[in-house]
């Protein structure tokens, strides 16, 4: 948590400044921002931060860089609404505000010795990248890491330049799909669930991690459960209106949880009794 400069009382609403060092476009509407916060942000994969966009306001995002390298913070963001449009108008060298991190981290100690099956859809690969980098940083702790990723078209794939490097990492197995292919596309074609047709791990003793649009989350979860993944080993990034980040304002209520405090990653076991958790 950020420390106040004035006395003992800490103001959790007060952002710290962060400079935009670099930006690069992943796709026509997805951009990665490399930020240099004034103080180190001690985030762990799974947690999120609140970004203050000068001249606009605040919105929650999940870092996509490794929590083992905290001097810089990378965020891969899709332009979807007013906050992200304001963010996309910023240039390298501009200042942003950051507060956080908030929420719970992935319980990596529970992943140790297991096969980990990660499924991402669209820009949902961004928060999963933070997890993937944390896992591959200490890859000997895990049995194998499977990364499955689906995008709408080959043009919509994020981290295109990084994926070939990731394929060469030991104990890593990567497969991609697109909803609609083109002449250059040699991989699978179909919605992301085509990547679940052959699950190469021992589902009952493995961990699955999912992040993507709600409809994709819903069908991937169904597929994973059918394949035998235990409900308490299916980790889902839940999308709710996280506003304060402190577990206080109430907006992100999801059944008994405040996702900003208890999530944003919750297991299927935690959300299974909530009516239509993927909205």
């Amino acid at each position: 948590m950020q420390k106040s400069e004035t006395g003992n009382r800490m103001n959790p609403y007060q952002p710290i400044p962060a400079r935009i060092l670099k930006t690069f476009d992943e796709t026509p509407n997805i951009r990665t921002f490399v930020l240099k916060p004034e103080q180190e942000v001690e985030f762990l994969a799974g947690q999120f931060i609140e970004l203050t966009v000068p001249g606009f306001g605040e919105a929650p995002f999940t870092p996509s860089s490794s929590h083992f390298k905290r001097d810089k913070l990378e965020m891969t963001i899709m332009k979807v609404g007013r906050a992200t449009s304001a963010l996309f108008s910023l240039k390298e060298g501009d200042m942003l505000g950051i507060r956080g991190p908030y929420g719970k981290r992935y319980p990596l100690e529970k992943f140790e010795g297991k096969e980990i099956f990660i499924v991402g859809g669209g820009v949902g690969l961004a928060p999963l990248r933070a997890l993937f980098l944390a896992l591959t940083h200490e890859v000997e702790k895990y049995k194998k890491i499977f990364l499955r990723y689906g995008a709408r078209t080959p043009n919509d794939i994020v981290y295109k330049s990084l994926i070939p490097e990731w394929r060469n990492l030991k104990r890593v197995d990567i497969d991609l799909s697109v909803d609609v292919g083109d002449e250059s596309w040699k991989g699978k074609v179909g919605v992301v669930t085509v990547l679940l047709e052959k699950i190469p791990c021992d589902a009952k003793n493995s961990v699955a991690v999912v992040c993507g649009p709600p409809i994709m989350m819903k069908f991937v979860t169904i597929g994973l459960l059918e394949a035998g993944f235990p409900g308490d080993a299916v980790y889902l990034s839940m999308e709710t209106n996280m506003s304060c980040g402190l577990g206080q304002c109430g907006h992100c209520r999801l059944g008994p949880y405040f996702t900003c405090k208890d999530g944003p990653v919750l297991t299927w076991e935690q959300v299974k009794d909530i009516e239509n958790p993927f909205v």
Binding site: Y13, T52, G55, E58, Q248, H251
Partner: peptide, 19 residues
């Protein structure tokens, strides 16, 4: 009841956050 809304009043490059 404890719910609150955080909203921003943005003036040029400045942001004032109100609850």
């Amino acid at each position: 009841c404890f719910c609150f809304l955080l909203y921003a009043k943005a003036k040029e490059a400045k942001v004032e956050r109100t609850r």
